[in-house]
Design a binder for these strands. Structure first.
Lengths: 347, 347
DNA sequence: TTGTACGCGTTATCAA
DNA sequence: TTGATAACGCGTACAA
């Protein structure tokens, strides 16, 4: 009848000690005599007590050991992107140093259900995103007075950011192509804004996604008038579609393509093959990210290797530092340009 | 000096009401007069109170609104698998019905850091995995008396499972090939056990991964003596390597290949192309999962479509039901066989 | 080395 | 419609 779970008080009573002594046995904060410890442990065993209730401990300590990760997109979409996956991996590592776990949260409340971002017992939050969509989430979190870090996003005043030298990096790839003699270059970009449908980007288009805008600017620093085709997402299939558009007109065909992600680049390569073009002899293709594209061998992309996992790890460490009361600073990571076998001198 | 965050008691005092009334204003559990509500809201606004502390609420309610998801692997590895990604997506949906969030947990405690599975404020847990590795996690969770659901794993007595008709499903694909006249068939399997290196599977090998064993059994139900090559993971590159092994000896070459995942199948197709074989004219290839393989067009795999997202959703609903005190039952999902353009009659 | 006493911030219950 | 009271289960000064 009394199915209530045993508490540390029950254990203490059974062991014939005070609750605080029992508590200490589990937390190990203070020395306890072996005899007493054993009595407490035995009592716990016989009662089926499995340790302090995390909820109560969390209230008492003021910490829950949980870091929220907020995505703009649908969760499935987020993990389809290998870069985000790597980033999460690093983040998991980074917060592990404070023994915290990662709570997955979506930005948009799915109608009717509780908006967990406001009600979850978070110690800190990491916002992942590129457009201005997460401004609202940011407001909620800062109002709660929770430490927050933004990865690859427009954070606003006084918010810690983890970012990349997108423009400078992309400029390197463009310069590389320029040095190889290429002049007619096509650009394949990531999404221009939330809900963007694939298509050529008009010159007067406003690009709200930071990453897209910065990388495009880097490419145009070198090839001022290069046409840009915006993909709807970072995937091989989107790159294929973009590549088809670029190679459609044999007369206007570019001799090199700057893709804003490795997946897009892989798709562009497929499109080139499809059009009877050889890579890199007829067309050079560069990517961005430096991930391993499954199934792309024997091609090895000329690309910009970004420290995706390090970005996540840095975010985790920043969060850890802030929770420890230390001050943490924004970090700007640098990409490493890597020459593969998908770029060559202009034929 | 007093930087302590305001509590609901502070708000109540400022508004001139009792704490319980203020609480009700935020929870909406009981009707409150508009005048009173406004006074409380105003007080909260002026004090910078942003709502009840989730930690305290969680202690009082006995619920944290958090469901743990435990993976055997490294987080990055888990999300590299599209099936797991879909499953997570469904799971997120499923637990959203009770307003819960997903806490990512790893099975192996990374040495020294707190094992969060024992200390996290979980309402329930979902274990994802195929081998017996998560037995330990299971023990921890059941000891805590937390509802638990296992997806695609050997759960043991009395544990709720969400599974697939792996053997029957794979048998369908095999029968399909048999009906097409194929007799020399090769099998490409998923990992045989944790840490497995790719290679031919000896007849006396013990297969500890449930999914691998069941699907292999299904294939052998039809092709008793078909040789099986075990991949190290589910990826196109692993499939490519397996395919090379299968097609290495032109004389012994199979006319059809049963792959245990779509990614592996995609790799096998690449290997076939590489060997100058045409799919499906020279070689038929079947997959398993029914995911969209990025970049595989124009091939459309003959495969078994598994309801990956539904599995996750079902796990979420099961968890919700158990938390509501209802009884939930194990579920066995069924795959749907889909014929694409990668299988054809034996030449 | 152990015990006492109290508070963490909230909410359920019941009475007014 | 509002308020008083009592937990929820634990950790930690401080005293013994």
């Amino acid at each position: 009848m009394n199915t209530r779970r045993p508490t540390i008080t029950d254990v203490a009573r059974t062991a014939g000690v005070s609750p605080s002594t029992a508590s200490v046995v589990f937390s190990g904060k203070t020395a306890v005599s072996d005899a007493t410890r054993q009595r407490v442990l035995d009592a716990a065993g016989s009662l089926g007590y499995t340790g302090p209730d995390p909820r109560a401990a969390s209230l008492r300590r003021g910490r829950s050991g949980i870091v929220g990760v907020v995505f703009e997109e649908h969760l499935g979409a987020a993990f389809l992107d290998p870069v985000k996956t790597l980033m999460m991996d690093g983040l998991a590592d980074g917060v592990a140093s404070i023994g915290a776990g990662l709570l997955l949260l979506r930005d948009q409340a799915p109608l009717g259900t509780e908006p967990t971002l406001t009600t979850a017992p978070l110690d800190a939050a990491v916002l992942v995103g590129c457009s201005g969509l997460l401004r609202e989430s940011l407001a909620v979190v800062t109002a709660r007075g929770i430490p927050v870090v933004v990865i690859e996003g427009d954070a606003g005043e006084g918010i810690l950011r983890i970012e990349l030298d997108n423009r400078e990096a992309q400029r390197q790839a463009a310069s590389h192509l320029r040095a190889l003699g290429h002049e007619k270059v096509g650009i394949v970009t990531l999404a221009v804004r939330a809900g963007w449908q694939r298509g050529w980007i008009p010159d007067d288009e406003t690009i709200t996604v930071d990453v897209t805008r910065e990388r495009l600017a880097g490419a145009r620093d070198v090839f001022r008038d290069a046409p840009a085709f915006g993909a709807a997402a970072s995937s091989i299939d989107e790159g294929l579609a973009a590549g088809r558009a670029l190679f459609a007109d044999a007369a206007a065909r570019p001799t090199a393509v700057l893709a804003q992600s490795d997946l897009l680049a892989a798709g562009v390569i497929r499109a080139a093959e499809e059009a009877g073009l050889s890579v890199p002899d007829d067309v050079s293709v560069t990517g961005f990210d430096g991930i391993v594209v499954d199934g792309l061998a024997p091609y090895e992309l000329t690309t910009l290797v970004q420290p995706a996992a390090d970005k996540g790890r840095a975010a985790g460490h920043a969060v850890a530092a802030m929770l420890a009361g230390e001050t943490a600073a924004s970090i700007r990571f640098t990409c490493v340009f890597r020459v593969g076998n998908t770029s060559a001198p202009r034929a």
